[in-house]
Each structure stands twice: as C-alpha cells, then as structure tokens.
Amino acid sequence: MLATIPVLVIVAVLVFLLLRITPGDPAAILAGDAASTEQIEGIRKTLGLDQPLPVQFGIWALQMVQGDLGESYYYKVRVTELIAQRIEATFSLALVTIVVAVLISVPLGVIAAWRFGGWFDRFLMGFSVFGFSVPVFIVGYLLVWLVSLKLGWLPVQGYKRIDAGLWPWIQHLVLPAITLSVIYIALIARVTRASVLEALGEDYIRTARAKGLPESRVLIKHALANAAVPIVTVIGIGIALLIGGVVVTESVYAIPGLGRLTVDAVLARDFPTIQGLILFFSLIYVGVNLLVDLSYVVFDPRIRY
C-alpha cells in the first residue's frame, strides 16, 4: 500500500525529464510564428523556463506536495481546475464502458465455459480474436456511419453533461462506450471463460451437482464465485487502461474530456498540464490496483493481508 508513493515519485521525475529532453519549446509555440527572439526569451523568463532544471523541478515538486499542479501555459488557469472541468466526461465514458463490458462479457464467458467446445464457445473465441485485432477508431467510425449517419438514431458526436438530463447524457455516451468496450468484452470474456472452465473441473462442482442443485446455481454460486479473483483482476486492469485509452475515442467522438485535454496539451507543449495529467492518470492507475487487491478479500475468504 505504501508502495504507491515511490511509484508516484518515479512517475513525476520521469515525466518531468522526458518533457524537457524531447524537442519542442513551449515559449516558441506560445509566442507564435512572427515573434522575435527577445519576445520568446521574455516568455521563457515569465514561465521560469530559464532556470536550471533542478530548480524547475524543485519548484514544481514543492507545489505538488501542496496539492497544486501549477498553472497551464496555454489556458492560463490552474491545472487542477482544468482537470476538474474535464473529469466528468472522461469518467462518465469510462464508467459506462466498463459497465457495458462487464454486463456483456461475464455472462458470455460463463456460458462459453459451460458449453465448452460447442458452437457458442467457438463463436465467442472467434469474436474475441476480432475484438482484440480491430483498431478502436475503425469500430468507432463504422458505428458512427451506421447508427448516426445512415439510421440517424443517435447523435454523431459531442457530450452532454449529466446535469443536462440522464437521457441526453446516455445518448451521447452509447456509441463511444460500445466502441471502447469491444476490446474489453473480448478480454474479460476470455478470462471469465478460462477461469470458470477451470472451476468447473473442481471437486466442489461435482458436490454441488450431487446435491441436486439446478445448473444455473451450480454455475453462478459455485463456479463463477470461485472464478472471481482473476476476473476482478482483469476488470481492474481494464479500468486503468480505459482511463489512458480514452485519448483516441474522445478525439473520434469530440468529447471534451481528459483525453482531448492531453492531446491539446501535448500539441501546445503545455508542460504543467501534461505533467499534471500524467501524474493524475498514474494516481488512478495505482488507486484502482489497490482497490482490486483489497477486493480479493471479499471474493476469497482464504486471502488475508
């Protein structure tokens, strides 16, 4: 649990250094094409980029431990405020995606394991290869073309905040969520299938059948309950990857979330914003992993920390 702190420190140092060794000068970009060398120099001074690297890092680190991620060069507002503005869209998308993925993939995986080797199992295995190999943007554009342009059922792109009403919020999230969930459905369904299949071979399944339980109860209460730990692990990894993966989807669907913010910040060489976002992503990553570890205790009483 205390391991989270060194992880965050290492991320902070790496991000800071990487940004400064990659080409691209934020001062030059801010000043525009027509600016003179003196103007650029002036901007560099105001931003504090003329200081030696250790001093720059020291200032940033000191702000950071006080919970301040600095001010964006480009938007001229606090980075924490920027993240706060964009977080709802990203979290809505991630949440709907993972809920859709789990609701679809877990039952699919269980049925495939139950009918191991049958047509359904083979279909699911085929689908998961498809899900793994088709790039997100292809699925995205295909869905937009079919559902929004041809059939006109859903809006093409954009985002409506949840306080504008549940229905518009959902309407705008359905397509991006399905797009994003394809790969997670493939991943979680495969892990569920393998894990349930293993559990079905155990002695306690034979016991459950010998007790005269209906097959549905054998599958859910006995097989799935024992298969939960690997499934929860992969769902956790899924959530963490999703937060990072929204960069592409938010671009395709023009959703003003953290993914779009990241792309814009990188293009503008907006150092404080990039640093802040990456630190924030890694914090979520570490946090989700911690929650997954702690959840094992609930799913398997034999695990104790």
Partner: peptide, 22 residues
C-alpha cells in the same frame, strides 16, 4: 436432480476439495 440428496446422496474422497472454498 430432485432425487439427488433427497433419495440418494454421495460423499467423496477429498474433503479438502469437495467443499466450495468461498
């Protein structure tokens, strides 16, 4: 299914693995 456990029951060799651990 109705007969199992009600009219005929079975106990197994491995008590370590024959019970659901969770």
């Amino acid at each position: 299914r109705q007969l199992r456990c009600a009219s005929m029951s079975m106990i197994f060799q491995e008590p370590m693995t024959a019970l659901n651990p969770v």
